[in-house]
């Protein structure tokens, strides 16, 4: 599975990167590289069962007071 994943990422790089280099779009290449690295890290971590911080939990914690306030204002239990 890990190999397959690497193969997919290799495919994406092979498909996109040469064109970017040829057209000398360095900014795009940097963004591409960063995002791909991020995606790779996330998916690798999931495949290897490495626990990751969950953004949903962050959003929930951040907006909990407001969510509670809405419930209070509208008087639903």
């Amino acid at each position: 599975m890990l190999l397959l994943l690497l193969l997919v990422f290799g495919g994406i790089i092979a498909l996109e990167a040469p064109g970017l280099v040829r057209k000398q779009m360095w900014g795009e290449l940097a963004a591409f590289g960063f995002l791909l690295a991020l995606g790779m890290a996330l998916s690798m971590a999931q495949m290897l069962d490495i626990p990751l911080p969950n953004p949903t939990k962050g959003i929930e914690a951040l907006f909990k007071p407001m969510a509670d306030a809405i419930d209070k204002v509208l008087m639903v239990k």
């Binding site: 990422f9 994406i12 498909l15 996109e16 064109g19 970017l20 779009m25 900014g27 795009e28 290449l29 963004a31 591409f32 995002l35 791909l36 991020l38 995606g39 790779m40 996330l42 998916s43 999931q46 990751l52 969950n54 953004p55 949903t56």
Partner: peptide, 24 residues
């Protein structure tokens, strides 16, 4: 990011989205 094209960003962002959708 102040870039010219968005096309190069599509595939890598897609990978991030897939990973996120499972992670969330």
């Amino acid at each position: 990011l102040g870039l010219m094209y968005y096309r190069p960003l599509v595939t890598p962002l897609g990978v991030v989205i897939i990973a996120l959708s499972v992670l969330l």
